[in-house]
């Protein structure tokens, strides 16, 4: 049975020059990973910080653990764990000491060693935090978020700026959390991260929610699209010619041509004979399934990483 842990209704936060959060509503079910996906400046962090109690909303309702709150209460704070986008700590503290500090803030907390083990920092426990690598620091931040054994964990872009290895490390931790039945609220601008980890993906842009669904649900909405990609000498290429086939709008990215189509067989056949006729070399030709990136593109006309 699913149970709503958090409900956000008609949340608004306007700044003089920008509508950071523009009337958004969503809800999160217990034990799921909910992801806010969107480019930088979409309003993800503002949304998160309103829910965490850092910022005040102009308008809107938040129902947290079944209770309607104007802002997160101290009692609710006992039950949540937070990792902010910036991972700074009081300077000159050791890993262990940072955890001890955060443990002291809560009524109940996990044993420090357990948390250290969970984020795999056993060997670093007596090192100063400022001496750690970016990925290790991020794990300290996540450890701090877990210290009170929270029911719900907020992770604001936990993998931004990390190398793939460190990123996979963090993914492991999040999957582990999910396995423990915790609810995770994640923000990210990496679509593969959202796709891999989330139960629900909420796509945000310019302060508005443009779509909420499961990752596969999002992709299904694109229909039976497939993507044919290849590299070619663009000067010899006439896009209009390609667009005349049974395809969605053809896209060019660098020297790469991307053809979205619902009729894969026909397009492939046409493409190969067309290339032969034109004596064109098709390099790195590939066919792939649509992903969240394509979803975002189809919804906004822009790419996430732009």
């Amino acid at each position: 049975m699913s149970k709503k842990i958090l409900e956000v209704k008609n949340l608004k936060k306007y700044y003089p020059t920008v509508k950071a959060v523009d009337d958004i509503s969503f809800s999160i079910e217990k034990g799921t990973v909910f992801t806010l996906l969107g480019p930088n400046g979409a309003g993800k962090t503002t949304t998160l910080e309103i829910i965490e109690g850092i910022k005040k909303a102009d308008e809107g309702r938040i129902v947290f653990f079944g209770e309607e709150l104007k802002q997160v209460s101290d009692e609710a704070k006992q039950k949540i764990g937070v990792s902010l986008q910036s991972t700074n700590f009081i300077p000159h503290l050791k890993v262990k000491e940072v955890f001890e500090l955060f443990a002291s803030f809560f009524k109940k907390s996990l044993p420090i060693e357990e948390v250290i083990g969970f984020v795999s920092l056993e060997e670093k426990r007596n090192d100063l935090v400022e001496k750690l690598s970016g990925g290790q620091k991020q794990r300290v931040a996540i450890g701090c978020a877990l210290i009170n054994d929270p029911e719900m964990v907020f992770l604001d872009e936990p993998t931004t700026g990390l190398d793939p290895q460190a990123r996979r490390n963090i993914w492991g931790i999040i999957e582990h959390l999910k396995g423990q039945g915790k609810t995770v609220f994640l923000t990210t601008h990496y679509m593969e991260e959202a796709q891999k980890l989330s139960d629900m993906v909420c796509i945000m842009d310019y302060g508005k929610i443009i779509a909420i669904d499961t990752p596969s649900g999002h992709i299904k909405k694109l229909g039976e699209l497939n993507y044919v990609e290849f590299a070619a000498d663009l000067e010899q290429l006439d896009i209009d010619e390609l667009n005349a086939w049974d395809v969605e709008e053809v896209e060019i990215e660098g020297d790469k041509v991307i053809i979205p189509t619902k009729s894969l067989h026909i397009v492939l056949e046409k493409l190969l004979s067309w290339a032969k006729r034109k004596e064109l070399d098709l390099n790195d030709i590939s066919i792939r399934q649509p992903n969240l990136e394509d979803v975002f593109l189809s919804l906004t006309g822009r790419r996430l990483r732009d």
Partner: peptide, 15 residues
């Protein structure tokens, strides 16, 4: 420094 580095902010998320 604490404000700038978001340390105050982080504390605000705890009880």
């Amino acid at each position: 420094y604490f404000r700038r580095k978001g340390i105050f902010k982080r504390f605000a998320c705890t009880p």
